[in-house]
């Protein structure tokens, strides 16, 4: 495998690790009782949102790069592998769509420098569940 493809694969896995690890951490911080600090969760969430969108851009870029390695040998959409890819792409679109309101709520909270919004545990819990689903699909795809 050439170094560029290796780098693309590494970046894809590292980006997924950042998205999932951060979502799990935020879910725990937001749901924790008693809370650690009124503003700590908001601050960490704000940093996470910057990293999350950087990682999403990287995932899209490297994901297409990974598909590019198949070239003309990419399995057709009606094959089992092709169906899995369709499901994964729809799930990625759903994650992106769901994540915009979450980021907007965190951004509004950081602007006001207020206590974490009550919906944060639900938003980060849902993000974690969707990301684990996509990770499952990715593993399923990688094993044919």
């Amino acid at each position: 495998m050439d170094p560029l493809h290796l780098l693309v694969r590494w970046a894809h896995v590292a980006g997924m690790a950042a998205i999932l690890g951060g979502a799990l951490l935020l879910w725990w911080l937001a749901a924790r009782r008693p809370p650690l600090d009124d503003r700590l969760t908001t601050r960490v969430a704000e940093r996470y949102e910057w990293i999350f969108w950087a990682a999403i851009g990287l995932q899209v870029m490297t994901g297409v790069g990974n598909l590019g390695a198949f070239g003309n040998a990419l399995p057709p959409p009606e094959s089992a592998w092709g169906t899995k890819l369709t499901i994964k792409l729809v799930a990625v679109l759903a994650l992106a769509l769901f994540s915009v309101p979450r980021t907007l709520i965190v951004a509004a909270g950081s602007e006001a420098d207020t206590t974490p919004h009550l919906s944060l545990p639900l938003l980060y819990g849902s993000t974690t569940v969707i990301v684990i689903g996509i990770l499952g699909l990715a593993v399923w795809l990688a094993h044919g």
């Binding site: 851009g57 990625v92 915009v100 951004a107």
Partner: peptide
């Protein structure tokens, strides 16, 4: 700072969703 984060998120959302949608349409 809030507007920078929102622009970063929405800009990435637009570019990413556009490409994934095109790939999905081409794939099917």
């Amino acid at each position: 700072e809030r507007d920078r984060l929102i622009a970063w998120a929405l800009g990435t959302f637009h570019a990413g969703v556009l490409l994934v949608t095109l790939v999905l349409l081409l794939h099917v």
